[in-house]
């Protein structure tokens, strides 16, 4: 907190200035993010029909108890959990691997570093479109390649198969987001002290040991932060899944946000949709709290602050 102290003492001005600077964005977010959020919170205790959204009779906890008793929620939660955890593991794993590759010098490195970010720039809708085509059961290049390789999975309709749809969605998601973690980890790798690596080499460490003693401690906070962001973004990812499978087949890719949208716009039950949203938000908040606890603990363990 030294910096905070410094900032206050060094640049104190008129007491209203900070509020003046923060007010426009504060008002903006209040109007377009938090007021709608509060409305949703209220709506989760009402029975509201999409066609008559102004009529919202108060029903108390009924939406929530319906969700819990219905049993569908547990399936949705488990799909969401699998999807989120897999996103985190693979997006960060592939990101870390590619970042390590791109960190070592080779000819054309800057070009490679630029090209790797392509998937991240591609619009989700286009990604959904192209991957739907790639996963097409008969003519998709994915299946054709698998058949060519002689694998049994060839010929399956990936997006229509209850056990293959989620892996397909996952592959697409990881393809789209791994460049982000790659780029962020790559930047963190620049902070690894060269001397530390050299010291490890002189001490006779092998590659894995160098990674463990010199590289990992430096990038660990960044990886933790990425974990938080990838988790939160995976919890709210909509376009890709909706356009590729709409949550199907038989709920195999039905994550919370997809279920929220189905309840609201397919079953026209805005109250239930809102209560799903609230549950999802609580999970995101919980993850955030855990993240801050974990960072605090690791910082203490490492003796910082």
């Amino acid at each position: 907190m030294k910096r905070a102290q410094l900032a206050r003492e060094r640049l104190d001005g008129h007491p209203w200035t900070p509020y003046l600077f923060a007010a426009p964005v504060g008002i903006y977010l209040l109007l377009f993010q938090f007021y709608p959020l509060i409305q949703q919170f209220y709506m989760s205790f009402t029975a509201t029909d999409l066609l008559t959204p102004t009529v919202n009779p108060f029903v108390g906890m009924e939406n929530y108890s319906f969700l819990i008793e219905d049993g569908e929620l547990w399936k949705v939660l488990s799909v969401t959990a699998i999807y989120t955890v897999a996103c985190v593991v693979f997006a960060i794993g592939v990101g870390l691997g590619s970042a390590l590759l791109l960190d070592s010098p080779f000819i054309g490195r800057s070009l490679a570093r630029a090209l790797i970010t392509i998937p991240w720039a591609a619009p989700s809708v286009a990604v959904a479109l192209i991957f739907t085509w790639i996963f097409n059961s008969q003519y998709g290049i994915f299946n054709r390649a698998l058949t060519e390789l002689g694998l049994q999975l060839g010929g399956e309709n990936w997006l229509d198969n209850a056990s293959l749809a989620l892996p397909a969605i996952l592959l697409t998601t990881v393809w789209q987001i791994f460049p982000f973690s790659s780029v962020v980890i790559l930047a963190a790798l620049q902070g690894v002290p060269q001397e530390l690596k050299e010291a490890a080499v002189i001490d006779g460490a092998d590659r894995l040991n160098i990674f463990k003693t010199a590289t990992w401690p430096t990038i660990q906070p960044t990886v933790l932060m990425l974990t938080l962001f990838v988790t939160i973004w995976s919890l709210r990812r909509f376009d890709l899944i909706w356009l590729m499978t709409q949550g199907g087949p038989i709920g195999a890719t039905n994550t919370m946000v997809i279920e929220l949208y189905r309840q609201g716009f397919v079953y026209r039950d805005l109250g239930t949709a809102a209560s799903i949203g609230m549950i999802g938000l609580s999970i995101a908040l919980l993850v955030t709290v855990i993240y801050f606890k974990v960072t605090q603990m690791t910082e203490q363990a490492q003796g910082k602050r």
């Binding site: 977010l29 109007l31 377009f32 993010q33 007021y35 709608p36 959020l37 409305q39 949703q40 709506m43 999409l50 959204p53 102004t54 962001f229 939160i232 973004w233 919890l235 709210r236 909509f238 946000v257 929220l260 949208y261 609201g264 805005l270 949709a273 809102a274 949203g277 999802g280 938000l281 995101a284 908040l285 955030t288």
Partner: peptide, 16 residues
């Protein structure tokens, strides 16, 4: 705001 799904805010934003 990073935690709020667009799909959740669509309905209230629609009315606003």
């Amino acid at each position: 705001t990073q935690m709020l799904p667009e799909a959740m805010l669509v309905v209230p934003l629609y009315s606003i």
